[in-house]
Simulated assay, not measured.
Amino acid sequence: MEKSVIIEEYNPDWPVEYEREIKKIKDIFGEKILGIEHIGSTSVKGLGSKPIIDIMAGVKDLRNVDEYIGPLSQIGYEFVFHQEFPFRRFFRKGQWRAGTHHFHIYQYQSEYWNNNILFRDYLRNYPKVLEQYYQLKKDLAEKYRMDRILYTSAKAPFIEEIINKAKNELKC
Score class of each variant (00 low, 15 high):
Phe85Tyr: 14
Trp96His: 14
Ile22Trp: 04
Leu34Asn: 09
Ile163Pro: 03
Ile159Ala: 05
His82Asn: 12
Ile53Gly: 03
Leu136Pro: 03
Glu131Lys: 10
Tyr112Lys: 11
Phe103Cys: 04
Leu150Ser: 12
Lys24Arg: 15
Phe119Ser: 08
Glu160Ile: 11
Phe103Thr: 03
Arg148Asn: 06
Arg92Glu: 07
Ile36Gly: 04
Lys60Asp: 12
Lys93Phe: 05
Tyr108Pro: 00
Tyr151Cys: 01
Ser41Met: 06
Glu9Cys: 00
Ile55Leu: 05
Lys3Asp: 08
Asp13Phe: 11
Asp66Glu: 14
Gly76Arg: 05
Arg148Gly: 07
Tyr68Cys: 07
Lys24Cys: 00
Lys3Trp: 09
Ser41Trp: 08
Ala156Pro: 00
Thr42Gln: 04
Ile149Val: 15
Val80Leu: 11
Val44Pro: 05
Gly58Lys: 04
Tyr122Glu: 07
Pro15Glu: 03
Asp147Trp: 02
Ala98Glu: 13
Tyr77His: 12
Arg148Ser: 02
Lys24Leu: 13
Arg148Asp: 07
Gly99Ile: 04
Pro15Lys: 09
Asp139Tyr: 00
Ala98Cys: 11
Glu37Lys: 09
Ser110Asp: 11
Ala166Arg: 04
Glu21Thr: 01
Leu140Ala: 07
Ser4Thr: 14
Lys137Cys: 03
Phe158Ile: 03
Val5Cys: 09
Leu123Asp: 10
Leu136Asn: 07
Asn164Glu: 14
Lys143Phe: 04
Gly94Val: 10
Asp13Met: 14
Lys128Arg: 13
Tyr122Gly: 01
Glu84Gln: 14
Asn11Ala: 04
Glu2Gln: 15
Asp27Trp: 02
Lys165Ser: 02
Ile28Asn: 07
Ala141His: 06
Ile55Gly: 06
Tyr122Thr: 14
Trp96Glu: 15
Thr42Arg: 06
Tyr133Asp: 06
Leu62Met: 10
Glu17Phe: 14
Glu84Ile: 13
Arg92Leu: 09
Gln109His: 12
Ile149Lys: 15
Tyr106Gln: 05
Ile36Trp: 08
Ile7Leu: 04
Tyr18Ala: 06
Thr42Leu: 10
Asp147Pro: 08
Trp14Tyr: 11
Ile75Tyr: 11
Leu170Ile: 12
Phe85Met: 13
Met1Pro: 10
Thr152Asp: 06
Phe87Glu: 15
Gln109Ile: 01
Val80Tyr: 02
Tyr10Gly: 09
Tyr68Met: 11
Gln107Asp: 10
Gln132Ile: 00
Glu31Leu: 02
Gln95Pro: 06
Arg148Trp: 09
Ile75Ala: 09
Lys171Tyr: 00
